[in-house]
Amino acid sequence: MATVSTIVQGEPAMLELGELVGIRCQQQQLVIFLNGDLGMGKTTLCRGILRAFGHKGPVKSPTYTLVEPYNFDSSIVYHFDLYRLGDPEELEYMGIRDYFDEDNTLCLLEWPEKGGQFLPKADIAINITLTPGGRIVELVGYSKAGDKLVKQLQ
């Protein structure tokens, strides 16, 4: 289980970290859990990851739709926000498992703890906590692919 931790100060630095992560996620099938309180920068980090894939437009948190797909030439990134999920079983009704079975997909999940048993295990967990003057961002690999990616960021 590889782990790397860094202090990020400000939105531009969070975007830059997201881009670094996104570059290493190319051409892989990964599940990334984003953990942190409201306002910690989870969506900003997702925006940076999507920039690495070539996305130029705005990135909104899919709080009400639960998932926002981003289609690229050779992959799809699914951005989930489960904050307003009433019951984890709702994920089963929306066919959540299908999102994780596609090749070359990156699934970014904000508030994964609300998904319970209906979510697969994470390849990487990104934990964001507040520190004076910024955020502590910890990346933890939970699979072979996740460990490899986290080690590349050290």
Rank of each mutant, 00 (worst) to 15 (best):
A2R: 07
T3R: 12
V4T: 15
V4H: 09
S5K: 14
T6K: 13
T6M: 14
I7C: 08
Q9Y: 08
E11K: 15
A13T: 02
A13F: 08
M14D: 06
E19T: 13
L20G: 08
V21S: 04
G22F: 10
G22R: 06
G22Q: 10
I23W: 06
I23F: 10
R24V: 04
C25Q: 05
Q26F: 12
Q29C: 11
V31M: 08
V31R: 05
I32V: 15
I32C: 04
F33A: 12
N35A: 11
L38W: 07
G39Y: 13
M40K: 04
M40F: 09
G41C: 09
L45S: 02
R47S: 13
R47W: 05
I49R: 03
F53L: 07
H55M: 08
K56S: 14
K60C: 06
S61M: 10
P62S: 09
E68S: 13
E68T: 11
Y70T: 12
Y70D: 08
N71V: 15
N71R: 14
F72W: 12
D73R: 11
S74M: 10
S75D: 06
S75Y: 06
Y78Q: 02
H79G: 08
H79W: 10
F80Q: 02
L82T: 06
Y83M: 09
Y83D: 09
R84P: 06
L85N: 02
L85P: 02
P88I: 06
E89D: 11
E90L: 06
E90A: 04
L91H: 01
L91C: 03
E92L: 08
E92T: 03
E92C: 00
R97F: 01
Y99P: 00
F100M: 10
E102C: 05
N104V: 03
T105D: 03
T105N: 07
C107T: 07
E110W: 03
P112G: 12
E113P: 00
E113K: 11
E113A: 15
K114M: 11
Q117L: 06
K121S: 13
D123K: 05
D123M: 02
I124V: 14
I126T: 03
I126V: 14
I128Y: 01
T129R: 14
L130K: 04
L130R: 03
P132L: 07
I136M: 12
V137Y: 02
V140T: 15
S143F: 00
G146N: 05
L149C: 04
L149A: 06
Q152Y: 00
Q152N: 09
Q154D: 11
Q154M: 08
Q154F: 03
